[in-house]
């Protein structure tokens, strides 16, 4: 999966500007699904048709978008001020690089004349430097969006470090599941969703459009295993994290139990996840239309929303296996 993951994480696709990564996914899945469509907000929906009468209609979702920035002003000397798209921490911005849809890159600098130099900077105190000499020379315009820019690397034996593993790793997993899934009795709609980082917007409208019976999001979650990390019983390398709850959703216990059972049957290591801050597309799916049973399989990830997010490949393969296992068998809730 590594070449696929590398292509996906290094692609451009901040919230609302998922076109490039969407085309990349479309090219990868080509003829695998029975049909694909792009809905009004830009969600890519790939459907495998139902093989048996008793099959359910299942919606899987992984989001295409990544956090990023948007230019809000270009000053006289060609520096750009910007605002965040999604949860961007100023702490990880300084010295970072951003890349725009056109391929133009810039470096983030810190305003030297700050109101309170003792405090961490605010986004308003940062700017992007394009090496431009003047406003007229600046290669971007107000309203242009950028993602962070960093190549993927392998660290240690099993671990990948990259920007945008949130949630391109979920996207890669969905593609791999589509490749491996043979003879599922269910109708499976793979939703590559947009605008998750700004409020689960794509998943909500996609769920309305699909009107599925069961929903499962595939997204990253935090871990509690770093020095003085959060008190959280999820470890990197501990296997797929089956969500019990997060700050936006109580996972349907039937979906959670089904996932736990399928992991056990396949002898897959798995962990239960309780995430105190953050949520996933499943929260939006759960309350679409008249509601649906929803759950989430998470990939344990360190340093979320930084340009160096870290996952363990064994966890990634575990999530693929768990989803294939779940989708190949009957879903009785």
């Amino acid at each position: 999966m590594q070449p696929l993951i590398k292509k996906l994480v290094e692609a451009y696709g901040p919230s609302g500007y998922e076109g490039q990564v969407r085309e990349l996914v479309r090219a990868e899945i080509r003829s695998l699904p029975d049909y694909t469509s792009v809905d009004p907000l830009g969600n890519l929906i790939a459907v495998l048709k139902k093989k048996t009468k008793s099959g359910r209609k299942v919606m899987l979702s992984a989001h295409l978008d990544e956090i990023g920035v948007m230019v809000s002003h270009i000053d006289e000397r060609g520096f750009a001020r910007f605002v965040n798209l999604g949860g961007v921490s100023p702490l990880t911005c300084v010295g970072g690089r951003v890349r725009f849809a056109s391929g133009v890159t810039g470096v983030i600098g810190l305003d030297a004349r700050r109101d309170d130099p003792g405090k961490p900077p605010t986004l308003a105190e940062l700017f992007i430097d394009f090496g431009a000499a003047s406003r007229a020379d600046c290669p971007v315009k107000v309203g242009d969006a950028a993602g962070f820019y960093r190549p993927m690397e392998t660290i240690g034996e099993h671990r990948l470090v990259a920007k945008s593993l949130d949630d391109r790793i979920g996207v890669a997993i969905l593609i791999e599941v589509m490749r491996q899934l043979k003879n599922s009795p269910h109708e499976v709609a793979f939703v590559f969703s947009v605008q998750e980082e700004v409020g689960l917007r794509g998943a909500g409208t996609a769920a309305f459009g699909l009107d599925a019976e069961v929903g499962i999001a595939v997204d990253v979650t935090r871990t509690g295993d770093t020095p003085n990390g959060p008190k959280m019983a999820v470890n990197l390398g501990g296997g797929p994290a089956i969500k019990v709850r997060d700050s936006g959703m109580l996972a349907d216990p039937r979906v959670k139990d089904l996932l736990v059972q399928r992991a056990r049957e396949a002898n897959l290591p798995a962990q239960l996840e309780i995430l105190e801050a953050g949520t996933t597309d499943a929260a939006a799916m759960q309350i679409a239309r008249g509601g649906l049973p929803a759950g989430c399989v998470s990939i344990p990830t360190r340093y979320l929303h930084t340009p160096s997010e870290m996952v363990d490949l064994r966890d990634v393969e575990g999530v693929v296996a768990l989803l294939v296992q779940t989708l190949q068998k009957p879903i009785e809730l």
């Binding site: 809905d39 009004p40 907000l41 969600n43 917007r201 794509g202 909500g204 409208t205 309305f208 459009g209």
Partner: peptide
């Protein structure tokens, strides 16, 4: 408005 039903550009 943009989040109603299946989404509205």
């Amino acid at each position: 408005i943009h989040r109603t039903r299946a989404g509205v550009p």
